[in-house]
Design a protein around this nucleic acid. Structure first.
Length: 255
DNA sequence: ATGGCCTGCAACGCAGGA
């Protein structure tokens, strides 16, 4: 089973890139973030014609998540139970015995912002719910835009980013707490090139200069991690005209 | 030069992203 996550930064704009990428990559399931579409505007037909079932939870202008799958999606649920939130950032569904959880973690804006406090509270709530989900679903994958660069090697310029949002101690602690629940970073299960990133600013020719961050992740429960055969960041869509600022992350799991 | 770009909304600049 090949699973992927991709922050598309507007599904309306990126639909052609997504459809091309699905045709080439043929993933079994894809989690999307920042669809920026209300549910009535979701391109269901185009995605079904590409051979995928789809579940989505969107809103106007901001956020929005979706799960595309070649198999049937069951037990679909949106949001974090018990955590009231207008922002559409979480979608879970099961496919072929695997629990897929798609997350768009709040950005946080800056460490002195109210949005940063919301980010940390949101992550607390996510972990609380994940404890229950993991107990119910031992084969679980948490895929998405975490808006956290977990380690200095995930940052092009660690000194410049030190203690800044996406790299701050409390955010990295949150990521480590997720690992402490038994989840494993699929990307770091394998040897990887240095300076591997999943996001590059649109400004400053950052992609060409590889001035990026690794903030999009696939975390796997121990059962899935044991069966994971590879994980990579696919930078090819980032090279296209009018790209998303994020690249897809892909993991392959045996059987 | 601590900014540059992109998206959506509904305006002709703003919020938000990261």
């Amino acid at each position: 089973m090949k699973i992927a996550t991709w922050n598309v930064n507007s599904l309306k704009v990126r639909l052609p890139h997504l459809l091309d990428w699905l045709a080439v990559e043929q993933p079994d399931a894809v989690c999307l973030q920042e669809t920026k579409l209300t549910d009535d505007a979701f391109p269901v037909t185009e995605i079904q014609q590409a051979g995928y079932q789809v579940a989505f939870s969107g809103q106007k202008t901001y956020n929005g998540v979706a799960i595309l799958a070649k198999g049937s999606l069951t037990e679909v649920s949106a949001g974090i139970p018990g955590f009231a939130d207008e922002q559409k950032r979480v979608l879970a569904a099961s496919m072929d015995g695997v629990r897929l959880i798609c997350v768009y973690v709040p950005n946080g804006q800056s460490v002195d912002s109210d949005k940063y406090l919301y980010k940390l509270a949101w992550l607390d709530a996510l972990r609380g719910w994940l404890t229950e989900e993991l107990a119910r679903h031992p084969r679980l994958a948490l895929l998405g835009d975490y808006n956290i660069a977990p380690d200095d090697r995930d940052v092009h310029d660690p000194a410049a980013w030190a203690d800044q949002v996406l790299c701050s101690g409390p955010e990295r602690d949150q990521f480590r707490d997720l690992l402490g629940m038994g989840l494993q970073d699929a990307f770091r299960l394998f040897e990887q090139p240095e300076k591997s990133f999943s996001w590059w600013d649109y400004r400053m020719a950052a992609f060409r200069r590889n001035l990026g961050l690794r903030i999009d992740h696939i975390l796997l429960s121990s059962e899935l991690a044991a069966d994971c055969k590879n994980c990579r960041i696919d930078t090819s869509p980032r090279k296209l005209e009018r790209p998303s600022d994020h690249a897809p992350v892909v993991a392959e799991i045996q059987s």
